[in-house]
Structures are given as C-alpha cells and as structure tokens.
Design a protein around this nucleic acid. Structure first.
Lengths: 215, 215
DNA sequence: AATATTGGGGAGTGCTACTCTCTAATGTCA
DNA sequence: TGACATTAGAGAGTAGCACTCCCCAATATT
C-alpha cells in the first residue's frame, strides 16, 4: 500500500500523513525506490491510534509522541512500566499554564491540600506521599476551591471509591504479555477517560431524575 | 479596587483582564469616570472561575463563555437546567475534529456501538436512547476500538458502576437554592472531572501493586 | 511517451489566547 | 498647580499548534 492507500484506509489526508512522518508520529514505510515506499497494517494501526489519542483523548501531538515512545519501547520491569505510564498519564496537561497560586491574596496556608490528598492516597494504600500525582491532585482541588467549588470529604471519598472500582477493572483487563499490557494500560486508560466522564454525565441525569421525578 | 488590584489579587496580567473584558468573559466594573472603573469581589471570583475552567478543566474560552452564560442566567425549570447543563457539558469537545468513521475500511456495521450504549443507558434508567450523550459515548468507544483498545462488557459495566457512585454523590452535593445548584452542577462537574481522572491513576497504582506486590 | 503519484521539505494558513501599543482622560503626590 | 503614573478602550501584533499547500525530481502507470 502506498501513502494514498493509507490515506484512504484511515480517512486522514495525505498531507497530514506526510506531516506525521516528518514529526516522527508515524514510522517510515519500506522504501522500494528513492521516491517510493510501501505501508502496511502497522501504519494503519498507528495512524488510527494517533487520531484516537488526539480526537478522543484530547492529547496534543507532543503528548502523543511520548505515548508512542513508551509503546514502541516497553519498559522491562514493572517498576519502570509504572514510572513510564505515570509520566505519560501526566501528558494531557503538558503545555498548559500551571494553576499556580493567585499571587498573595490569602494568608500562607502551607498546602493543606497536599496534606489532605496525601492522607487520602496513603490511607487507601494507593501511593506514597511524594508521588507526582499528589501535588497534581492537590492543584486540581485548589483550583476548584478558588473557583468557589468546595468538595466535602464525603464527595471526595465517593470519587475515590469510584476510582477504586474503575482501577480494579482496569487492572483486571491487562493481558499477561508485556507489550500488550503496556498498550492496554497506557492507551486504554487515556482512551477510556472520556468514556468515564460521559458515563458520569449520563448517570447524573439518572440520579437527578430519581431524586426529583417529574420535570 | 481598580484593574491593577484585580490583577494583583488574581495573579492574572492586566492585559489579559482587559482581553477578558473585551471578550465578555468578565463583566465591566462600575465606572467612576470616563477612564476609571472599580472592581469588586464578584470580579475576583469570576476571574478565578475563568482561570480554573481553562487551566484545570481544560476548556477553551468559547466554552467558558457558554458556562458563564448559564451561571449568569440560571434556567428556571429543572428540565431547562438539565438541558443547559447538558449543552455545557459537551463544551469541552467543541471545536475539535469529530471522530468520524474512517472512510470505507470495514463493512457497514450500522452503529452497533450506539445500540450497545443505548442499551446500557436505558437498562440503568439513565437517559433515553436518543439523548445526545449516547452518540457521544458511542463515538468514544468506536475511537478506542479503532485504536485497538477493546472494552469488555465487564470493563464497561465497571466504569458505569463507578459513574453511578460518582453521580449519586454529585446529586447529593447540590444545594437547594437555584443559582447555587446550577453552579455546583455545572462548574462542580467540570472542575472535578480532572480530579476523578487523577484518582483513577492513583487507584491504578494501588491496584497494580496489590496484584503484583514486589517491583 | 504522456500522465499521475510519490517522498521530501519549505512555506503558508487559520485558529486561539494572549500581549503590546496607543490615546485621551483621570488619579496621585509634591 | 504641575509632573508623573494609571486607566479604559481598542487596534494590531505575537507565539504556538496542527495542519495544508506547493514545489521538485524521481518513479509508476497507461
């Protein structure tokens, strides 16, 4: 298959495929001559993955590149895998403005968010207090608070319970084979994030209707 | 407080505040003269909300504008509220490329994703089969499948269970007063979406460690 | 032999979210 | 009262992203 065939099969314009090749998001085809190369199903899959990651998971191309790097060179040990997966999971927020403190509006308040989050994470045995996810979550809660949205302990606990349910199913779905495992964890999580959020909205409708039956 | 005070208290540059004023993301201050206006705490809150929505929830300014419009003019009936909230909830994906079908690669397959999703939603009594969330979710599942990530029924059911847990807590957290309710539903959901996703990653670490104890 | 397509690469596009610059009017301090 | 800083308002310019267009010589197809 030549590049036009790849374009046809994926629905992505030839110009864009060339751009992906240049940017290293798509591995080169097998050259048959100086101005000719053929592409196979691995290229089709790769393009579809790139498109799903950008369109559905909302990653930018830099983040996609990092994801692909992990998939192409799967870490050997479980520890490395977790580290790599973790780095990739942070990918969505990269390039954004850090939600830093609003100058000096309030008194010091030496990050009790971090303390609250660290407590939650260690209580459940999820991760250490110095995990990179802890400050991240603390920042998200701080942002909500700054916007006037306060999460009660009960509400946060419900989110955590739900996360535990999801994570159990996530882990159960991981295949034994290494490359497949990495793919399932990294791409699977990123691509099911939007699924989870949409289900939340659906369930909200149902729960709201249950509380207050008639329109 | 003048505009420089607002900038100081929110950490947002004056030039950006002026831009927000021009774009209608921030209501005008009370003019004290032709080239002078004062801003109050409502302006501080509004700016912080805009920043949280963009930085934490990842909305673009067009989506933020829609959110603010709903908050400023809260729908009167519960039905209208749900409709407005629904529209706003879709806001995050606006402006993106629709994850359309990949030209003609596979046979027809007349949207069995929609059927699967509609079944799930109606089984749980969440929404009708013609709800706008249904095709949205179907598209997300289709994208995952195209990228080589298949969700088993059990996995999807787990996500749905988790969504139910979250939604119950969401609904329980809504105050009785109308304006506060709208704010809590709309802004609260958008701002806790990233919280939920981060908790998922934390819980994955914990679940993974539980399955395979040592590094 | 004529026409179409390809790989490679430079340059241009449209969009978003600012950021800069300007002007006349106003506030602040000596 | 005058010097200087700040302000509202608005136009124009910027950086980054994800393409998209165009050109070339080499190759494939007819």
């Amino acid at each position: 298959m030549r590049i036009s065939g790849l374009a046809e099969r994926t629905g992505v314009p030839v110009a864009t495929l060339k751009y992906y090749l240049r940017e290293g998001l798509l591995h080169a085809g097998t050259a048959t001559a100086r101005t000719q190369a053929v592409y196979d199903t691995t290229h089709v899959e790769r393009v579809r993955l790139v498109r799903a990651l950008t369109d559905s998971a909302g990653l930018n191309l830099g983040a996609v590149r990092e994801v692909l790097a992990v998939l192409d060179d799967p870490p050997r040990t479980r520890h490395e895998l977790l580290g790599a997966a973790q780095k990739v999971m942070l990918a969505r927020e990269e390039g954004r403005r850090p939600p830093q403190a609003d100058a000096e509006g309030e008194p010091p308040a030496p990050d009790l968010w971090v303390a609250r989050v660290a407590g939650l994470a260690t209580d459940r045995g999820w991760c250490d207090a110095d995990d990179p996810l802890v400050p991240r979550l603390a920042g998200q809660l701080r942002a909500a608070e700054a916007a006037g949205i306060t999460l009660t302990d009960a509400h946060l606990a419900a989110l955590a319970d739900a996360a535990a349910v999801v994570a159990a199913a996530d882990v159960a779905s991981v295949p034994a084979e290494r490359a497949g495992a990495v793919r399932q964890v990294v791409a699977g999580t990123l691509l099911t994030d939007p699924v989870l959020l949409t289900l939340r909205r659906m369930a909200q409708q149902g729960a709201s209707a249950a509380v207050e039956p008639a329109g």
